Simulated scan of single mutants.
Amino acid sequence: MKGYTKPLALIFIVLLIDQVSKIWVKLNMTLGQEFNILGHKLMIHFTENNGMAFGMEFGGEAGKLFLSLFRIVAVIGIGYGITYMIKNKYNRGFILNVALIFAGALGNILDSTFYGIFFSESSWYEPAKLFPAEGGYASIFHGKVVDMLYAPLFAGNYPSWIPFFGGQDFLFFRPVFNVADSAISIGVALILLYQKRYFKEEHLEKESINSEIIED
């Protein structure tokens, strides 16, 4: 288990926070309901989406099924990649970043795969119920992803000289997201930020191994 402890612990913690927050929101809030955490800069705002991260949509019911299955295949591939990297002693920071991406992807897969079976439909009038007597609101792979984090940090207007958008209002950050989305974004951002360090260390380590082989 050497090398697996930290990645597995990170995946477990992210999944636990993600699913606990989603289930609490699903069972205690109505669609559109919100309350402030840090004034108007960070809020809990309950919404659901049929598609990708940050509320983006993808092609109706057929697109939803394709996206759910694609996510599962992608997560299996990422999981295999993590195992390969641990066995081949890749940079630990890089492995943890990939583990964040894996946990985030898996968190949203749980929503789209099982929430339609386990919960009743959320509405603007009452929270959903867990394991309703009449059955869930959708079939397997057709559940909706729960989003609740909303951070409208600042608003303004695009300068008039910008093509197409000049003079229009903008809001950062407009999409509503969840813990799983955050984990994916942080993992990708850290890989991009530290990629030179990660792959430089990997290159130096391989050179050292090759030198030892040649000397022997």
Rank of each mutant, 00 (worst) to 15 (best):
M1E: 09
G3W: 12
P7R: 07
L8T: 14
L10H: 07
I11L: 12
V14Y: 02
L15M: 11
V20I: 15
S21F: 08
S21N: 08
W24T: 13
N28G: 06
G32V: 04
G32T: 09
Q33F: 03
N36R: 15
L38Q: 08
G39K: 12
K41R: 13
I44F: 02
T47E: 09
T47R: 04
T47Q: 07
N49P: 12
G51R: 00
M52G: 03
A53M: 08
G55V: 06
M56Y: 09
M56L: 15
E57M: 08
F58C: 11
G59E: 01
G63T: 10
L65K: 10
L67C: 09
L69T: 05
F70E: 00
R71L: 11
V75P: 00
V75K: 05
I76R: 00
I76A: 13
G77M: 12
I78M: 00
I78A: 03
G79A: 09
Y80D: 00
I86D: 12
K89I: 06
R92Y: 11
G93E: 04
F94G: 07
L96A: 09
V98H: 04
A99H: 10
I101W: 01
F102I: 08
A105Y: 11
A105N: 07
L106M: 14
G107D: 12
L110K: 07
L110P: 02
D111Y: 07
F114W: 14
G116F: 06
I117G: 00
F119P: 04
F119S: 05
S123C: 14
S123L: 09
W124G: 03
Y125W: 03
L130N: 13
P132Y: 09
A133G: 05
E134I: 04
E134S: 14
Y137S: 01
A138R: 04
A138M: 07
S139G: 15
I140F: 15
F141R: 05
H142L: 15
H142I: 08
G143T: 00
G143M: 06
G143C: 04
V145C: 02
V146D: 05
L149A: 08
Y150F: 14
P152K: 13
P152E: 10
G156A: 01
P159C: 01
I162W: 01
F164A: 10
F164S: 05
G166L: 06
G166W: 09
G166T: 07
G167Y: 01
Q168S: 14
F170Q: 01
F172E: 07
F172R: 05
F173H: 14
R174F: 08
P175H: 02
V176Y: 08
F177A: 10
N178R: 10
V179C: 05
V179A: 13
A180C: 05
D181L: 01
A183F: 02
I186H: 03
G187R: 05
G187K: 10
A189N: 02
A189V: 12
I191D: 01
L192F: 15
Y194K: 11
Q195I: 14
K196Q: 11
K196M: 11
R197E: 07
K200T: 15
L204K: 14
E205T: 10
E212F: 13
I213E: 08
I214V: 14
E215N: 13
